[in-house]
Design a protein around this nucleic acid. Structure first.
Lengths: 199, 199
DNA sequence: GCGATGCTATAGCAGCGCTATGTATTCTGG
DNA sequence: CCAGAATACATAGCGCTGCTATAGCATCGC
């Protein structure tokens, strides 16, 4: 399928153009228009494919009785997904790539993000129910803070500003700071966060 | 100059192309090649212009005796700079935009980031010297955490995933969590962070 | 004054996304 | 089972992109 092909070319740092993506497949450029309504539609499909892969990786994170570990591990899964396919990640979250209308991209990203984001919110809610976080903590807000911080570190890695190992170390500190701020016990939080990276 | 023109067109959401940027200026397309070595060079120049403006806005943040407030305010200045010119911010930090070689963009961003980043590191160092942070805190690492979190929230706003007001609220919580984690007194930290937004 | 050097304008290249058009193929109704 | 309708296809070409080769012009050193 053209979507997988586009994603593969993206990973190989090859330019993905209307003509290059259909070259060798035997199909013509018109197929892109009948199936995807043009290149913006193909980018949209690639974006959804990226979110599907992210969702898959998110689902692979097991649920344990340590919800704080789970919450950490979910964030780690997002980051690992991004670093394993940087260009795809950029297509997913950067409205400029694919030169599509920014608002359309935003809608797609926001909707697709919600699904993968639910897992983090659930983990945060479970942690609160287990007494790890204060009762007045909004799980969605806490998950957003954690996800946004990870997203920022990831984007800086993708932009070449910092290295992946630096981001890894700082993410651990940030996670601990956020979760302790939400009410978790510092020592216990540190252990849970560390466990979140231990596969 | 073509750089300002390109930045202005970027802000007006107009497509910035070789021909469109020179249209009306009287100069020919060749000027872009003699002065900027092609479109990638022009994007590089626009990026530097963006960092210059950011540096200007960073410099406008006054130094007070409350270094934590200053550190917060510097992060706020970065965010405000981004939201006031979203497309320019994307060009600055997104390697894909301008379709330049990713590594070259990374080098430019990393180097230019260092200069604007120094102000945050200095503020963090002053806060540590004032006893607000623990002695074992690395100012550069703490500043990176704060900046990365703000960057992540900003990118999500630019991507349409969250609103600016949501980012504003979460940034305050994140800043407090990070600075308290670094050793600051919770109540005092909250006041300083809040003051960071109060212009 | 004059040759040399550097900048500029023009024309044209290959590539891009996209569309109009004619053809083939596949569903659908009787 | 077959005619008619609807859909998907390949081709050719449009206007645009970044870029470059060439020719003309200005300026500077001597």
């Amino acid at each position: 399928m053209l979507i997988e092909r586009a994603a593969a070319m993206l990973g190989r740092h090859e330019p993905v153009s209307l003509r290059s993506v259909v070259a060798g497949t035997g199909v013509s450029t018109m197929a892109v228009y009948t199936h995807f309504d043009g290149m913006p539609g193909l980018w949209r499909a690639v974006r959804q494919e990226g979110f599907a892969r992210l969702e898959e990786q998110i689902a692979a994170v097991g649920i344990t009785d340590d919800a704080v570990r789970d919450l950490t591990a979910l964030g780690v899964a997002c980051t690992e997904n991004a670093l394993s396919a940087p260009d795809l990640y950029r297509v997913m979250f950067d409205a400029a790539t694919g030169s599509e209308d920014a608002t359309a991209t935003a809608t797609t990203s926001a909707a697709a993000t919600d699904e993968t984001f639910d897992a983090l919110v659930d983990a945060a809610a479970r942690a609160r129910a287990a007494g790890r976080f204060r009762a007045d903590i909004d799980p969605a807000r806490l998950a957003l803070r954690w996800r946004a911080a990870g997203h920022g570190l990831t984007m800086l890695v993708l932009g070449g500003v910092i290295t992946a190992s630096t981001a890894r170390a700082e993410a651990e500190t940030v996670a601990t700071a956020l979760f302790v701020d939400a009410g978790d016990d510092p020592d216990r939080c540190r252990r849970s966060v560390a466990a979140g990276w231990a596969d």
